[in-house]
Design a protein around this nucleic acid. Structure first.
Length: 276
DNA sequence: TACGGACCTTTC
DNA sequence: AAAGGTCCGT
């Protein structure tokens, strides 16, 4: 989710038409929102038995025990808006967080105002924006794929059609998503996991690739992630953690992200042949 | 079928 | 130089 912001001691997150202002006291969280408590509970997966899930993950993969311990309380989000999630991930390819947040904020700006910001627009609205306009606003080459993908989604039936994909088979939905311009294997898996709640999905980005090679495929350390290696390692991880693979992946991601600089140095030391 | 580059722009 | 990759050509 790329529309988090901090306003004083209040954390704000916007999700499609929803917004939440969250502040913490010693004993609880106080939440102000334009929707009811059930939406907040769904967003943070409060319906999930996390103790059982942690136990299950550690049983299948003891190597993740330290990750789960040091990041205890980490929650994967369950966004309400599949449209916003999909459009957001279209902004992420070959890109960095700061710029992605700006771009998602720009897309949200095409929606209707709320008390605190904007409701993320329907795909149909984004489809009506020109490539030229998005390029002028700093989207680069993604300015071409975003409206095209939005037009296809609008043609499918918009948000409701995306929600209906949740009832279909993993592989079939993945193929469908891969048909969208700008969506390759990694984005398809992100959309499956975060927008459509397919827990078995394993998105492999640069961070996860580092973690996977370190833990499971040392012979592939410091090699490029090719399509073949992508599918092989994702399938391995899915077989290991099943419906919890996505959550397990999230712990690896955050751990690697937090130790990003450090890891990069270590990696550079190991392959310093071409560095000056 | 499997790599190698180009691709927009910003940040470190 | 690299960033929460994808696409096209060889």
């Amino acid at each position: 989710m790329f529309r988090w912001s901090q306003v004083g001691d209040v954390w704000r997150v916007q999700d499609g038409p929803h917004w939440f202002d969250i502040s913490a006291t010693d004993t609880c969280f106080r939440v102000r929102s334009n929707v009811d408590e059930s939406a907040f509970r769904s967003l943070f997966r409060m319906d999930v038995d996390h103790a059982a899930m942690y136990g299950g993950i550690i049983k299948r993969g003891p190597e993740l025990q330290e990750h789960l311990g040091s990041l205890n309380g980490l929650r994967m989000m369950r966004p309400f808006s599949a449209t916003e999630t999909l459009m957001s991930f279209l902004c992420t390819s070959n890109n960095h967080i700061a710029r992605i947040k700006t771009m998602v904020g720009t897309l949200a700006g095409y929606g209707v105002p709320t008390e605190v910001g904007y409701a993320f627009p329907e795909a149909e609205v984004i489809a009506s924006v020109s490539e030229t306009e998005l390029r002028a606003k700093g989207f680069g080459y993604r300015g071409a794929s975003i409206p095209k993908a939005a037009a296809m989604i609008a043609d499918w039936g918009g948000e409701a059609s995306l929600q209906s994909l949740k009832q279909q088979e993993f592989g079939a939905v993945r193929e469908r998503l891969l048909g969208l311009p700008g969506v390759g294997p990694k984005l398809a898996d992100c959309i499956l996991l975060f927008a459509l709640d397919f827990g078995e999905s394993v998105p492999i980005d640069t961070h996860i690739w580092q973690a996977l090679t370190r833990l499971y495929f040392p012979e592939w350390s410091n090699t490029d992630l090719t399509h073949k290696k992508y599918e092989a390692s994702a399938e391995f991880f899915r077989a290991r953690f099943g419906e919890w693979a996505g959550v397990a992946h999230q712990f690896l991601f955050v751990d690697n992200m937090l130790n990003w600089r450090e890891r990069k140095k270590e990696s550079a030391l190991g392959t310093s042949v071409d560095s000056d």
